[in-house]
Amino acid sequence: MKFIRWLLLALTAGIAAGASSALQTHELFDFSPVPGNIAYALVALVGFSVGLLVREVQEGLFLALSITLVGTITLFLAIYLPNVEIAATAPELLLRSVWWGSLSIFFLTIIGIVVGRILSGE
């Protein structure tokens, strides 16, 4: 039961964080209907939501890592699939976006979790 809860949280939060993070990547930023700040705010909101749901600090940190992993895969797919030919010729361009995206997912999720836990009185 605990595993299913963790899996569901990691998947939903990871996909949400990865999709949000993809909005501010170099490849998709100009085509996004929202400013880059909204994309970052959405990632932080995911962290905040998770912060309300976790019970312990260790669980929060473990979830942040899981969310970063799922988020990175989501982000990679979001920018790789429409750019298969760019990825074949200049993979470093996509990898740079994925690297910065996953870093922002990890830190914003951690910040969100901390804020969520503080605001909920834990």
Binding site: A13, A16, A17, S20, L23, S32, A39, A78
Partner: peptide, 14 residues
Amino acid sequence: ISLVVSVILLALTE
């Protein structure tokens, strides 16, 4: 809400 909003925004962007 975050999941729905982010997936919709990503779909529109793509």
